[in-house]
Design a protein around this nucleic acid. Sequence first.
DNA 1: TCCTGTGAAGAAATTCACAGCT
DNA 2: AGCTGTGAATTTCTTCACAGGA
Lengths: 221, 221
Amino acid sequence: MMAESTRRGVPDATVGRLPGYLRALTELAERGRASVSSDELADLLGIRSAQVRKDLSTLGSYGVRGVGYDVARVSEQIAAELGLAQERPVVIVGMGNLGRALAAYDGLAPRGFQVVALVDNDPRLVGTEIEGLTVGTLEGLDPVRTPVAVGVITTPASAAQEVADTLVGLGVRSILNFAPVVLRVPEDVHVRAVDLATELQILAFHEHQRLLADARGNEVG
Amino acid sequence: MMAESTRRGVPDATVGRLPGYLRALTELAERGRASVSSDELADLLGIRSAQVRKDLSTLGSYGVRGVGYDVARVSEQIAAELGLAQERPVVIVGMGNLGRALAAYDGLAPRGFQVVALVDNDPRLVGTEIEGLTVGTLEGLDPVRTPVAVGVITTPASAAQEVADTLVGLGVRSILNFAPVVLRVPEDVHVRAVDLATELQILAFHEHQRLLADARGNEVG
DNA sequence: TCCTGTGAAGAAATTCACAGCT
DNA sequence: AGCTGTGAATTTCTTCACAGGA
């Protein structure tokens, strides 16, 4: 969480929804649909149609009044905006359960992400094969032979910062961090954090509020 | 992303940061720190100190001017707000790599989440043991014998909606969804979605923008 | 008539800036 | 002097509402 950019371009909130649009549009295309209205798209994403129109209008006008949006054209436009044309080499650091799960995830390749290296610091893992790749060490990563665009950190929290530092040193400027720590990185490096415990606690909050509301309701009613 | 509530309470954006505060405060407490300033907390979370003060002030005033916040008191208050006092039984549906990773994750228990059931529909998995629990089926879940507060969906996208429907039928009102689909649920059910591909695509966007910016810079400079 | 594109309004979140307590 | 708490200003995001093209 941090770091902007998007100068006079697509708002951050919109960027966050683009992958969702792309997913919906891809499914529509697979079903042979040629066009779609903002209402339908909104329904598919669980948002409002005005939001859809605003979002898509920032990419340029690819809709036709009275008809809707051309599925193929808008898909292309979003893919272009996200820079999905180029292959992005990904390294996964930390070959525990989560690292293995991500290494095996087949949703990456079709979206232009190619896992090019798996890394762990456990000598018992180094040299073994996972998903067709030989596990190596961080130090063994050669930024010339194996350029990396995105680093995924699935190590324990205690190791995450050091890993991040090394990745940054290798020229990685995009990091997806699953470890429950806030990484300190230069400001031109983008970090996105995914934390299971955080997500559950947010759910817990809402559940708790509901409980309180119910209790209040019973008193009153 | 959706679903409000929080009526005249803590803003959603603040709720999203509470787990982060709690994590930082817990670490500080472990190091024996008794108080902390908004500046230091802000630094730990990578946000601004004004944000910290606004956030914490919505929970009540637990700071002391000129001194800072009492680590223990604020921790308690946040834990209370998140409803972490009660144990929350969790069921994980989908025992693939990701499901296993989550089942093995040791960050849950200390935060009040207890995995009480593991579910899969593959007959070869049902009956086997994972992390000390016997894998069962969704149909086999008994809401009376095994009440469930939070459902975690780690199935393929194609199965996720059906699983969600079943969970909702069992009385689950909080769902953490790792499948890349938008779930349709009654409005009193909270869903949070975590999607690897989405996260990577957002990173890709920023990387792409940087590339464009660099190119522009070279032209101009 | 249908549905987009968009200014304008509204709501939410962030940041500023400073009064006030210790 | 140090640091919180908070109104006010600002920025960002969302929603409204409708003009206008197909």
